[in-house]
Design a protein around this nucleic acid. Structure first.
Lengths: 183, 183
DNA sequence: CTATAATTTCAGTAATTACTGAAAATTGGA
DNA sequence: TCCAATTTTCAGTAATTACTGAAATTATAG
């Protein structure tokens, strides 16, 4: 790995973190390398910089593409595939949440809905359904909320976040003026 | 596994999901079993219901306790440890985010801060630092926001979420009345 | 203190996941 | 079309992670 110390530390760290986020070490490293890189890199460059096999890069990049964490670009007169990460960190964050939802949240919601449709006879099943109902409600609320706010512009979102819990005060103030809007 | 079909499906599903959230299959199953259970269970009951070894349960429960996803309770006149999950799903969600932050976000922030302190000489390093600065800013903003809103009561939080993106309209309305509060 | 019930540790092994290199497939130009 | 550059697949193997059972430890009641 012939990276500068700053870059190398970052790449290694993301390798470790990758495993906590459901991708393996090498995929995490590939992502980090591309995130820092000022230009798109091709598979050979990635393989060489990180010191693993060409085929591993191929599989890893396929996974990063599927997570929409990287995109494929081409250079004129060059047949090779080049990879880069989206520039905007908000966009990255949004795709990540979006994909996590598709892969983890939606299947869970489906399971919960199915289970809630079943006829519960025993007390055990009735209690289980009640717990599932609570979980289902929370997930629906949280994902529904995310759906809505993710369409706000990055600036609006940023402003909202900077408001933090003060949002509550502003809202209750607005609520006093126009009861229909009370939070 | 002598669970009712409804419970069994849920338990198996959480086993699979566990691996995507950084815990292994058996730990995910233990959590799911306890989440659904109407009463606290001891290690032998867990081992028997799920069909794995007593020692595995011991290790798994240690992990769930460390994530604050389960708590230890005792029954009068019974020396054994019993386990249960917190009742309130909001509380569960909050501990999960809190622990994720401690283990994954904080170390990353530390790394980023350190890297940003370093003197960047090459263009490559300068660009890398700029990227890290963007990432650092996003993480600070998002975690700072979470810090604030997690202290709101579950009801307020729920109301805020139900507002969704409409929050923007209410805020800009309030802003017109009192420019100092403009979002 | 001793006996026993309960829990934890840990070395060994099983199971899973990650990685490689060689071969196959695909792509684009001549 | 054929050829060469590039990417993908996949079987085999390496590395890692998960799980067990036996032994050690801890805790409690008598």
């Amino acid at each position: 790995m012939n990276l500068s110390p700053i870059n190398e530390r970052f790449v290694l760290h993301f390798g470790e973190m990758g495993s906590r986020w459901g991708v393996n070490r090498t995929v995490g490293q590939m992502y980090a390398l591309l995130f820092l890189s000022p230009k798109a890199l091709n598979s050979d460059e990635i393989a060489e910089q990180l010191g693993f096999s060409r085929s591993n890069v191929s599989m890893g990049m396929k996974e990063l593409l599927s997570w929409k964490l990287c995109k494929l670009v081409h250079k004129p007169g060059d047949r090779r595939d080049y990879f880069e990460t989206p520039k905007d960190v908000w966009e990255i964050f949004r795709s990540l949440v979006e994909e996590k939802r598709k892969r983890e949240i939606e299947p869970t919601l489906t399971l919960l809905r199915d289970a809630l449709m079943d006829e519960a006879t025993s007390d055990e099943d009735k209690h289980a359904q009640e717990r599932m109902r609570e979980m289902h409600e929370l997930i629906e609320l949280a994902t529904g909320w995310f759906d809505e706010v993710q369409h706000l512009s990055p600036e609006t979102l940023e402003n909202l976040m900077r408001l933090g819990s003060k949002v509550q005060k502003v809202l209750s103030f607005a609520g006093h003026l126009r009861p229909g809007n009370r939070s």
